[in-house]
Amino acid sequence: MTKLMSGHVSLEQAKLLVEYLDSGQQEKADELIAEIQNPINSELFAEIGKLTRQLHDSLMNFQLDSRLNDLATADIPDAKERLNYVITRTEEAANKTMDAVESIFPAIDSLQDKVKTVNPLWQKLMDNQLNLGEFKNLCLDIDTLLKITGTESDRIHSLMTDVLMAQDFQDLTGQVIRKVIDLVREVEDSLIGMLTAFGISSTTGQAIAKPSVGDNLVEGPIVNTEERDDVVSDQDDVDDLLSSLGF
């Protein structure tokens, strides 16, 4: 690199120039003149050269890292499928549970209705005010109540078993999600590796970096409410905020 003295050209450079010209190395002489005229440019070129070499090396390293290729072409599409499986299974489970619950409601309602029919005569019996005709009716009512209770409780029992069995998704989806978390961790490591290879420190700007938020501010469920002060943590917080706004 050219050493800059107080003037534009040093004695060394002048001698070198004469030497080039004497020996007929016109190109080198021109280069030297350019360098003398614009030393910054040549520093810049050297720097670009260095960066280009680094970039080239980095890219070569990436081509060698076939894992990265696998991640992009196989593992990530696979993870998407796995997560879709989680959506399907949880949706199925929710629907199975609600199917059962929606059948349990009318079963309980019919029991309640029957109890309501029996109740007036039963109260009369307890108060010793029941005549024989009413007693016969009460016996018939109780007979139906017992039969309905038998069949409906059997039905409720089997529906409750359906609700129980619908919860088996948790184990399966748990395993699937755990695998996806492992993959995310691996992708994270690769990305950090990439940033490091390109000379960008992963800690730079971390303080201000925030996960991106969709349009219209939507973010979905907040999973770390304790660590944030821009979100509410429960319904009471919502109610407090709204009442502070005069709601």
Binding site: P221, D230, V232, S233, Q235, V238, L241, L242
Partner: peptide, 21 residues
């Protein structure tokens, strides 16, 4: 599930009658 204070304020200003998280 949206629980940002900013959003609750926004909904209130837009004239919501109730907000359940």
């Amino acid at each position: 599930a949206e629980a940002k204070k900013e959003q609750i304020v926004m909904a209130a200003q837009a004239g919501v009658n109730g907000y359940i998280v």
